[in-house]
Structures are given as C-alpha cells and as structure tokens.
C-alpha cells in the first residue's frame, strides 16, 4: 500500500506454546521485533475468531523474536493456549511506553505480582546489562501459580556475584516467604528506584511503602479497545491529567499516579 509510514501489524510465527503454571502459558514467537524499544511494552494479538485483540506484555525479546507469558482468563486466551508451533498470529508491535531505564539509578528493586512478573524479566536483563544492581521480588498465590523463578535464578547466576538478588513470596507460604511481596522488602532502604507490575492492591501497597523514599515506575492494566491510543477506552486519571494506559502508559511514574 502507498503512504504507509510504519507497519505495526506484524505476522509472528509461534515457535512454542507451553503451560508453565496453573492457567499460565509461555509462548515464544519469531518475527520482526525492531518496533520494540523498551521492556514493559506490550503486543496486541489478533486471536482468530475474536473481534478485539488481546494485549499481552512482552517478557523478553531479541532481534529475531519474543517471549510472552499469559494467563487464561477467558475464551480468547483459552484459544490462544491451544495454538500450536508453526501457526502464526498478527500482532500490533511495540505498543506502550515501557519502563524508562534512563531515569533509574544504580540500585533498582523490581516487583512482579502473578502475571505481572513477565515484564520484570526483560527489565532485569536490561538493567543488569547496564551494570545496575537489581533486587527482584516476585509474588504468587501458591506453589501451583509460581513460574519463571528458574529463569530469574539463571539470570542471577549469569551475572557477577551480588549484582542480583531474587526473593519469592507466596500468600500460603508454599514457596519462599509466606505473605505478600511487601513482606520481602527488608534491606531495600537504599534502593534508588523501584519498578512494579501486578494487581492494583500490590501497586498501591508499594506506592505507600516507598512514598517519600524512592521514585517508582508502575505498570498498569486496563481493558483496551485498540491498544494504540485511538479509542480512549483505557483512560486513567493522573496528576498531569487524563492519560491513556495503552499509549501514555502502561508504565507511569509514581509522582504522577493518583490512587
């Protein structure tokens, strides 16, 4: 077609699609990723048979493909979970702002709750590559919900001693510390920044905990129509006005957030 400046609707081929926890799946996809510019961005997936696309955060990416981790929450994600390697998906690529690593200091706390965990993996990798110290706190309900801890552990062993620490909490205490991510924050007084993705109560608790102590970048979730700023379906109120979660976010600075 004439007059196209930027083709964000890309065809990605499924390389693998496997269950990694209760109702949680990991999918690896091959295709152009040049539109992805920051960890914390998302793709909007056209699932055959469904009208609206499904926005899913990017867990990790390189030049030839990406990894997403998603939870089956309805019929769309249920169909997604039954798709096979070799099948392809049309995806709007590189959506949202992602985390601004240039605004982060040298000692960053990353907190992921449930399916808010995946973007923390890509962010941790990026920060470690930049030579920053990273503490990762992951929270789940129970052992059957826990995923990706071994990938984070591998990341921990791949970097020099002391630059990364992983902590896990489960609500029922079946893995790691019993309780919430906020029960795993001892020793984080000196962090320069925190970044978080997960349920609103978790984000709110972290926001309260670090208010006046450290700046944060929090990733929000909302039901979206388009995913690229056109329909204004996913608005939130911030201190600097009404913002679109899909286009102005999903990551917002703690200084801008109204809880």
């Amino acid at each position: 077609m004439d007059g196209i400046y930027k083709e964000i609707d890309q065809k990605l081929v499924i390389l693998s699609n496997e269950r990694i926890a209760d109702g949680v799946y990991k999918m690896t996809l091959e295709g152009h990723t040049s539109l992805i510019t920051a960890p914390g961005q998302f793709i909007n997936i056209k699932i055959p048979g469904f009208y609206l696309r499904r926005p899913i955060s990017i867990c990790d990416y390189d030049a030839s493909g990406l990894t997403i981790i998603y939870k089956v929450v309805g019929n769309g994600t249920k169909d997604l979970s039954s798709m096979k390697a070799g099948e392809s998906l049309m995806c709007l690529m590189g959506l949202g702002n992602g985390f601004d690593v240039s605004a982060m200091g040298d000692d960053v706390l990353l907190v992921g709750g449930g399916v808010g965990t995946p973007p923390m993996y890509g962010l941790a990798k990026k920060l470690l590559a930049m030579g920053k110290a990273v503490t990762v706190v992951l929270g789940f309900n129970s052992y059957s919900d826990v995923f990706y801890t071994s990938e984070f552990e591998e990341l921990e062993t791949s970097v020099k001693d002391g630059s990364m620490e992983l902590r896990v909490a489960t609500v029922d205490g079946s893995v790691g510390t019993a309780g919430f991510v906020t029960n795993c924050l001892e020793g984080t007084e000196d962090i320069t920044d925190y970044a978080a993705c997960g349920p609103i109560p978790m984000l709110k608790a972290l926001y309260g905990y670090f208010e006046g102590k450290a700046p944060g970048q929090l990733s929000f979730e909302e039901r979206m129509g388009c995913g690229f700023g056109a329909c204004v379906g996913c608005s939130i109120k911030t201190k600097s006005g009404f913002k679109k979660v899909c286009k102005d976010g999903p990551v917002f600075f703690s200084s801008d957030i109204i809880f």
Binding site: L52, M224, G225, G233, S235
Partner: peptide, 22 residues
C-alpha cells in the same frame, strides 16, 4: 474523563464501548 473503567467489552463480531465522550 468519561465513564468509569472498564468501558470496553468484546462481543461476537463486535465490541461494546462506554467511553462516555471522553
């Protein structure tokens, strides 16, 4: 601001919005 969120819903061959003139 418009209506409270969520204000988008999937439908068979369509969608519902209650953006509310944001």
């Amino acid at each position: 601001f418009g209506n409270p969120t969520p204000r988008i819903a999937e439908c068979r061959e369509g969608m519902i919005n209650s953006v509310g003139l944001a």
